[in-house]
């Protein structure tokens, strides 16, 4: 879990920090639970299938298909937790050379941009998600809709985190969770 430095900032900022942190915990906790469940299930299904196929020459048709729903959710859970932990890869180099006041302004604009982009994705996905209701998997009696709605969860979590970050930037500018830079090479 991420560390939390002593809260600073204005009175309003201080009183906001706790509820904001609670929302973050909800996003992070739900994301972690989704990761745990989907990763374990996918692992078991694939392992069982490999064993069956090599030992007995016949796999389970459903086990071969289940990742179609589970993988989007694994990714969505990961995206949600990554948002809270500030793990999304970005290019910070040029921002670093700006004076501090300007940096703060740019950072707030970035939060707004992330929020607008996430909401745009959610708002425009309607036709595809409606179309996906008719797309059934062949072995499991489930429609692709249940996979597609993971996009709502992932981008909803990103939008929520963008709002939290923005509120902190406005009301508690010195809040710093001291997150390490991450890379995934």
């Amino acid at each position: 879990m991420t560390g939390e430095s002593p809260s600073k900032g204005s009175g309003l900022g201080r009183s906001l920090l706790r509820p904001l942190r609670i929302v973050e915990r909800v996003i992070e906790g739900s994301g972690a639970a989704i990761i745990f469940v989907t990763l374990s299930l996918t692992f078991c299904a694939l392992l069982v299938n490999v064993v069956l196929r090599y030992a007995f020459g016949s796999g389970l048709a459903w086990a071969y298909e289940i990742h179609a729903i589970l993988f989007p959710w694994l990714v969505a859970g990961g995206i949600a937790v990554a948002s809270v932990r500030g793990w999304h890869i970005s290019v910070d180099a040029l921002i670093g050379i700006l004076p501090e006041t300007l940096q703060r302004g740019v950072a707030m604009l970035v939060s707004v941009a992330v929020l607008v982009i996430a909401l745009t994705v959610i708002r425009t996905s309607g036709p595809i998600i409606r179309a996906s209701q008719f797309q059934r998997l062949s072995e499991i009696p489930v429609s692709q809709y249940w996979g597609y709605i993971s996009l709502y969860y992932a981008f909803g979590a990103m939008a929520a985190q963008a709002v939290i970050t923005l509120l902190r930037q406005i009301f508690a500018p010195h809040y710093d969770r001291d997150l390490p830079q991450q890379s995934f090479s």
């Binding site: 036709p127 595809i128 409606r130 179309a131 996906s132 008719f134 797309q135 692709q144």
Partner: peptide, 12 residues
């Protein structure tokens, strides 16, 4: 093919 069908159904 699956993705193309969804795209067609969704009007993309």
């Amino acid at each position: 093919d699956v993705e193309m069908l969804t795209s067609v159904a969704g009007g993309v």
